[in-house]
Each structure stands twice: as structure tokens, then as C-alpha cells.
Nucleic acid binder design. Sequence first.
DNA 1: AGCATATTTGAAATCGATTTCACTATTACT
DNA 2: AGTAATAGTGAAATCGATTTCAAATATGCT
Lengths: 339, 339
Amino acid sequence: MDAKIIDVAAKAGVSPATVSRVLNQGSSVTAKTRNKVMKAIDELNYRPNAAAKNLRLQKSLSIGVIAQDINNAYFTEIIKGIENMAYARKYKVFICDAENQAEKERDYLSLLMDRTMDGVIMITPQLSDEEIYGVVDKGYHIAVIGRNVNHPKIPCIYTDNVKFSRHVVEHLVEFGHRDIVFLSGYPEAVDSYERLEGYLKALKDNHIPFRPELVENGDFNETGGYEAIERLFAKKMTFTAVFAANDEMALGVYRACEERGIAIPEQLAVVGVDNNRISKYLTPRLSTVNQPKYTMGAIIVEKLIDQMNENQFEDKRVFTVDSELLVRASSNYHIQKKK
Amino acid sequence: MDAKIIDVAAKAGVSPATVSRVLNQGSSVTAKTRNKVMKAIDELNYRPNAAAKNLRLQKSLSIGVIAQDINNAYFTEIIKGIENMAYARKYKVFICDAENQAEKERDYLSLLMDRTMDGVIMITPQLSDEEIYGVVDKGYHIAVIGRNVNHPKIPCIYTDNVKFSRHVVEHLVEFGHRDIVFLSGYPEAVDSYERLEGYLKALKDNHIPFRPELVENGDFNETGGYEAIERLFAKKMTFTAVFAANDEMALGVYRACEERGIAIPEQLAVVGVDNNRISKYLTPRLSTVNQPKYTMGAIIVEKLIDQMNENQFEDKRVFTVDSELLVRASSNYHIQKKK
DNA sequence: AGCATATTTGAAATCGATTTCACTATTACT
DNA sequence: AGTAATAGTGAAATCGATTTCAAATATGCT
């Protein structure tokens, strides 16, 4: 159906090699032949077949992004950073939605291994470090966003989960809270346990005894957040603040509070993480932790591309970006005098 | 680097043809040889090279989705429907974010033409029908979501924009409104002008004179909605209700109202379209029009795949799905007695 | 057992591009 | 003008799979 390079060559009265030269390096071809070829290409509406090209070149100039869940704006904003920078570097970006399933992450990873894409960026806290290392050690290119991986060939960018979690808890303590719930994501995710770690450290620093019953696991989704907090309500736990591992779960807390007539922040302070765009549309506005999402995407895709092209290999590999606690109405309320 | 089929063949002591047979049809090969081959595949960690396979097979079993903007949950929910159904049919889905730029839509369309993907689903109101027809007439497979295209080879699914727009306006009229703003997206988009059409018809039906100054164009984004309504406020227009062409733009209206201290719905009723998940987190909850997004995605991807495989070609091509006006707090307020 | 038939297998062609190598046509320079 | 250097071009090999066709082997039947 489509015209092939040999058709173009025939029409222009040259060899396929010449057509290829016109299309690619651009040198070593007379203006006259170039014009003939261009004309033929135009008339036949010729596009080089991607499969043939990729096969011959052993690369596809494309990058896969495996995102945890594209319904969550946290991921889509990172992706925009990736997209735009990749575009500038002539790479195509294919977005894969893992829908929170480790199995799908693995599935998409196989697109790397069959060489559909030259490299992959993972924004997924679920697969273990070891599993990722295994793939990289076979010679494939992976970069990671949102966690620190300790492998010389994996560029990564992240914010210090422990650090900002401490900030969140300290902020809550300052506002008089001592009984602070931590709503985790699924526990095997880095984002879960590192944020928990920060929570624990802050409690310790402030000499607040840790109450394990105040830690509940969710799934990083609204529903999981709702169910987790409901479990606590059902057990008649006493607490005055909730630190949710991300904004989506905080959303679930809002819903539960609304149903139960609990006032935020007067009766319950809520803080999330991600500065998901949804957070500022809530009433009251949700306090959260901002990360430079777009930038994180843009930086890491550059590093991945550089690495794939074997430039700058000795260069920096681990990047940390600062996060910022945005204290908004959902936690901006002193429940008692500071001691 | 990667093992090739010839390596597997050598290791198993058979020919590449046999390896291929083991991997594909599964028939015509002895249990004994099959085992030898499987063992070799396993040991070498062999994956067929996608480019070689695609080239030979002249297909890639992959579908591209060109979405207007992945930061908008309307699109990501449709995409989930596409993804899951495609997965069940053994197709890979590549999501492309057009970022509201017609230029990018065209760019991604070229991935179709270089055969990177077998077919494309467009969820983008921007490119003209003619432009899409042009591509299809060259023999490529395209399906469209969210608009009715009149081409025998293009499956499409949509809700009747004119119809639900009339409902929205009628609802507002019932609640006493006569000066109703229509916030359009960019005017060349189908979603814009069809929704405008419904708005106009409803006005006419209700004998309300059309005030052209109450129609403003946005860009389907929060910012565009904000700027559009601000232009009207600046001109000191009088109106009591806003019908925004989508929820994102309604978001902008909320922001403007908040800044100006205008109470929704008492001083201004607001209705959006899409039932974007964000809409129910707003205060007051946003009235909007719901479409079965997930289902739309799932249905159309099936049709596209069927068509690509040349089954069921005479089958139904145009699908309409019902939409539903969700009257929530943002418009649930009578501003005057019904006459 | 002997022949006809069915089943397994391999050699070679093929998909559509790029690139090397060799050859020809230019251009440059003495 | 004649030779050396350079630029432009084409033939053929190559990337790694699948598939056709024919050969080899196994099976079935009298």
C-alpha cells in the first residue's frame, strides 16, 4: 500500500541508497538529484517504514514512560516534563499506564526488552530495586523518578521522602497535634515506607510516643484513603491530624469527614503529598508537599537520553530536588496553645 | 547484545524456522524439539526483536491514542477503557499527549503513517474532519471519540453535544436564568460549536433573545476559562449563569468568582461538561454532564481492532451514547419564581 | 512389509530501510 | 593538459524475524 524507498528511487531514476542519503545525512548528494528525489517523495507521499528503519538502525528513538496511574495528575505532570524535553531531543514518548498493578509494570518493561523502545522511565514505586537492577544488568536502559536507586547505570531523581515527612509532622506538632495518623500507601512501595520513616523520626524528635494503631495502609487512591480512615473511625481511635502519603488518599479522608460531619481543620487537620492540582480545589484547600514535577521529568529524560547515547556517562547520576511544604487551610489551625 | 533467533536455534540444535514455529502457531512441532527450544529460549533469555517481527508481519499489534491533554481526567478515563479492552485483545496502547496543539496531533498522526502503530484513536476535537479523512483515504485506520465523523471507514462514538447542551440551558432557564453565558473552547473545535448550537437552540425554544456578547472563547483549560469570564466581568456584563464547555473551564470560573467574592450558585450558577472527577470535589459541587467515558473508550477500540482485522466491516460504525445532566449544588438554586 | 499419506523440519526468500565498498564523474592544482 | 584528490552514486550486504516450499521423517493401512 505505502510507497517504499525502492518506488521512490525508481520514480526519481536513482538508487535506493541515494534516496536514503537525501533523507538522512543530507550530504554527498547533488542539488539536482536531491530535488528529483524530493519530488518523488512528495508525489508518492513516502514515509520510511519505522520497523525497517528501527531494525537496521537497532534503535527506535523512543522512550517508554511507565506511570503508576495516569488518572493521578501527579504523574501526568511529570510526563509533560518528559514529553517536552524528549520532543526537543527528537525522541518519541510512549506512555504506559500501569494502573497500580505490579504485573502491568512488568509487562510494559518487556517492551524494553523486545527493543520496542530504547529506554524506559519508571514512575512507579512498586517494583523492587532488585527487579529493576536485573533488567538493567541485561543491558537495558532505565531511569527512575521518585526514588533513590543505588545502581551505577540507573539515573534517578527524587525528593527526600524522609525529610519532607518530618517537616509535615513537625508542622502538625507545632500546631498542637500529638495524635497524628499516618495513612500509608501499599506498604511495599518506597514512597510508603520512607514517608513512614520520616513520620517516626519526627515523633521521636518531639518525644511523642509512637502509636502503631495510628498507621493504616491504603493504596495511593481516593478509595484506599477513604477505607483506611474509616477503619480508624470504626475503631474509635482518637487523633487530631492525618498525614496522608499522597493527596489522592487525602481526598478519601475529606470524603469520610464530610460524611461524618467532621470539620477540617477544626476537628481534624489533614496534610497530603504531591501538590496534585486537585488539592487546591478542595475546601478547605489541602496542605500538601510540592515537588517540581515537570522539572523532574525533564531532567531525568535528558539523563536517560545522554546515557543511551553514551555521552556523559561519568556524569552525575543521582539527583535530588527540593520539596516544599505548602501549609494551606486544611492544617492551618492551632488546636491548643503551643507548650 | 540480545540473543537472536539464530542463537536460540544453534543452542537447541534446530533451525530458526523451528524456533519461530515454537513461538508462534505452536503446531507442527514435536514435543521433544519444543522442549529443547524452550530450554534454549529460557537460558538465553530470548525475546523476539519487535522491529524485525513488525517488519516481517507488516503490523505491530499496537494502537496509538492521541489525547487532547492528559492532565484532564476526562481523557485519562477514556484511555483506561481503551487500554483495558486493547489489552484483552492483545494490542498494546501508546498514549500520545497532544497538549492542546493541533501541530502535535499531526505529528503523532505520522506515527500511523510510518507504521509504528496499526491504528489510531483520536480524542481531540481540533483537527478538521477533512484532514482526518485524508489520512484514512490513504489506507490508514483511525477511530474517533467524542465527535461524529461522516466517513464510511471511521468508527466513531460520541454523545449528542447539541442535545445535552439544550438540556443544560433548559435546566438553567427552569431555575430562573435568562442571561446565560456560554464559555466556549477554541471555536474551531467540534465540541465548541456543537455545544454553542445547543445553547442557541435552547434560547430560541425558550424565546430568550440571544446576546452574542455573552459568548466567550476559552481553550478548554482552567486558565482559558478564568480569562474568558474575567473578560466578561471586566466589561460589566450582566448575567446570572455560566455554561462552560467543559469542567476545566468551569474551574476557572470558580477561581474568578472566589477572587471577586461572587457566591455560587446564589449570585452565579455554573454548569460544566465532562463530569471530570475534579468536579465533585469542588465547593459547591459542580453541575455537569456525564458521559460514559470508560465505556466509550472500550467500545471504540474494539471496533477499530475489528476493522483492522477486516472482520465485521459491514457492521455498525457510528455509536452514540447517552449523557446525563448531573444537577449539583452549583446550579441548584432558583434565582426567581418560575413564570 | 510396503506403499501412501501426514507430520516435522530446514534452506532460502522476504519485509524495507541503511551503509559499506567500489566505481565513476568532478574538481583542483601544477 | 594531465594527474591527484574529492564528490556523487549504485550494487549488495545487513538488521532479525516469518513463511513458503521442498525434503526428510514418521505414521497408517492393507
